[in-house]
Computed example of a mutant assay.
Amino acid sequence: MKQQLIVAILSAGLLTSCDDDVIPEKVPLEVRQNLLATFPLAFDIAWEKSGQDYEADFTVHAAEHSALFQQSGKLAQYKRAIPASELPEAVAHSIARNYPNYQLEEAEAFVKDHITSYQVILKSKSTEVEVVYSADGQQLRQPYWD
């Protein structure tokens, strides 16, 4: 009986955690059209509501992408997973200098207002940090976009 109660509670938690997911038909047409106009090779698209905006997670050429669209359909920002080799040299040097005991776990190119920055997840034996860099290797204060 106790196990059934635990399973029921965990299941309810999973159901409520997915409340922001949106079926494509509920996403405004302008948003869906702009996604496909901006990323014509996008596939495996999943939508969720983010405040008043819509976030799409999708794949292009085997790279994971996320894009945030306003209700009007305007693209607000997007990011794509990149290999470490695509990080600008200045970013790689800054990581090596400031986080010498960390390994690069994940890297993403982040674009907002036509400016590209780079989000990285760095791991040490006991710590994980999320850091954002400008293309010239400066660590930025802007929040890491999950």
Rank of each mutant, 00 (worst) to 15 (best):
F58M: 07
S124Q: 05
K79W: 00
A63K: 13
R32N: 09
V31F: 07
Q77P: 00
A107K: 02
Q71G: 02
S11I: 00
A96R: 12
T59P: 02
K49M: 08
V129N: 05
G137A: 06
T59A: 04
A92I: 01
P24T: 09
V111F: 09
E130F: 10
L29N: 08
T16R: 06
H114S: 15
Y102G: 03
S117L: 03
A76L: 11
Q138D: 08
A12F: 09
L36P: 00
S17Q: 14
S117E: 12
L29M: 08
P24R: 11
I121N: 04
L68A: 04
Y54E: 01
S124D: 08
L140Y: 08
F39V: 06
R97C: 02
V31R: 03
A76E: 13
Q142A: 11
A8T: 12
E89V: 13
P83K: 10
P83A: 10
Q70W: 05
E30Q: 11
V31P: 01
K49E: 12
P40F: 03
L35A: 01
Q4G: 14
D19S: 13
D113I: 03
A63W: 10
L140K: 13
P100L: 11
F110V: 00
E105V: 10
K123L: 14
A8Y: 05
D53P: 02
A135R: 10
Y118M: 03
S72F: 05
K112S: 11
E30F: 02
E48C: 00
L15E: 05
V132F: 07
V129K: 08
Q77K: 15
L87W: 03
D57Y: 08
W145F: 12
Q138H: 11
I9E: 06
A56R: 04
L14R: 09
M1P: 07
V7C: 06
L87I: 07
V120T: 03
D53L: 04
P100M: 11
R97G: 00
T59N: 10
S126C: 06
I82K: 07
K125R: 12
L15G: 14
A62Y: 13
E128V: 12
R97P: 00
L14W: 15
E130N: 13
R141Q: 14
E25F: 06
